[in-house]
Amino acid sequence: MGRHIGPVCRLCRREGIKLFLKGSRCDSPKCAVERRDGPPGQQQYRRGKPSEYSIRLREKQKVKRYYGVFERQFRRYYEMASRRPGNTGDLLMALLERRLDNVVTHLGFAVSRPSARQLVRHGHILINGRKTDIPSYLVKPGDVIKIKEREGSQNLVAGALSMEGMPPVPDWLDRTSTEPAEGRVSRLPTIQDVSLPVTPQLIVELLSR
C-alpha cells in the first residue's frame, strides 16, 4: 500500500489539529499548526458555513491520517466494527488503537507512527517471540511486544526511549523493560483510551449512508 510522501505538516494544518506525524517535533516551536493559522494552499479561507457532509468527512480524514490508513483499509475496519455488538464508532476506534504500529508508538519504541511502521516492516518487532512485520496486526490481551535483542535493533529504539517529553504509556499497555525494550498488552483499549479528539458517531453517520 502506498504512503503519503508529501509534507506531512500540511495534513495537520488541513485538519486544524496536531496529528503528531513527526513525533516530538510537533511539540516544538517548529510546529506548522501553531505557526500558520488556517488550512494549506493559496485559498486558505472559505466563505460560508461548512456543510454537514464536510463536517463528517473531516472527522473521517482526521482519523485516517492520524493512524496512517487509507480508504479501503479504513472501510474494512468499519465493516469489522459494524458486525460486532456494541457502539460501532467506539469499536472502530478501539480496533485502530490495537494496530501494532500504534502500540509500538504508545510504548515509546518509536517517536511517531510512520517511524513505528518502518520499524515493524523491517522485522525488528517480535510478538510472543515470533517476528511480525505487519503494521496492521491487531494485538490481543497478553501479547508481548519485544524488540529483537540484536544490537542494531536495540539501538534503533534507544533514541526514542531516551527522548524527553514523550507521552506516558496508556493504561491498557505496560512497558515491562527498556533493556531489552519490551512491553505487554494488559487489556483491550476502549474509547476512553483514544487520545485523538474525534467524534466517532459522525464517522459512522458518514459511512452508513
Rank of each mutant, 00 (worst) to 15 (best):
M1W: 03
G2T: 13
G2N: 11
R3G: 06
H4A: 10
I5Q: 03
G6T: 05
P7D: 06
P7G: 00
C9T: 08
R13H: 02
G16K: 11
G16I: 12
G23S: 01
R25M: 13
C26G: 04
P29L: 02
K30Y: 02
V33Q: 02
E34N: 02
G38L: 06
Q42P: 08
Q43V: 15
R46Q: 14
R47W: 00
P50S: 13
Y53A: 11
S54Y: 05
R56I: 07
L57D: 06
Q61W: 01
Y67T: 10
G68V: 01
F70I: 05
F70W: 11
R72W: 11
F74Q: 06
R75K: 15
Y77H: 12
Y78P: 09
Y78F: 15
E79A: 11
M80R: 14
A81L: 10
P85K: 15
N87R: 10
N87S: 10
N87H: 12
T88E: 15
G89D: 10
D90H: 14
L95G: 00
L95Y: 00
L96D: 02
L96N: 04
R99D: 03
L100A: 13
L100P: 12
V103M: 01
V103F: 00
L107P: 14
G108R: 12
G108S: 13
Q118R: 15
L119P: 12
L119C: 12
V120A: 09
R121A: 15
H122T: 11
G123F: 10
H124V: 09
I125Y: 07
I125W: 07
I125L: 06
L126W: 07
L126G: 06
I127S: 07
N128V: 07
N128W: 10
R130L: 10
K131G: 10
T132P: 03
P135I: 12
S136G: 07
L138I: 00
V139I: 03
G142P: 08
D143H: 01
D143N: 05
I145R: 04
I145F: 09
I147W: 02
K148Q: 11
E149Q: 02
G152R: 14
Q154T: 00
Q154A: 13
N155Y: 11
L156M: 12
V157W: 07
V157N: 05
V157E: 09
A158T: 12
A158F: 08
G159H: 10
G159I: 01
E164H: 05
E164Q: 09
P168K: 11
V169G: 08
D171H: 07
D174M: 03
R175F: 01
R175K: 07
R175Y: 04
T176L: 07
T178Y: 04
E179C: 04
P180R: 04
E182I: 01
V185H: 06
L188A: 13
L188W: 00
T190M: 11
T190F: 13
Q192C: 13
D193G: 09
D193Y: 05
D193W: 05
V194E: 06
S195K: 15
T199C: 09
P200S: 11
V204P: 11
L207C: 14
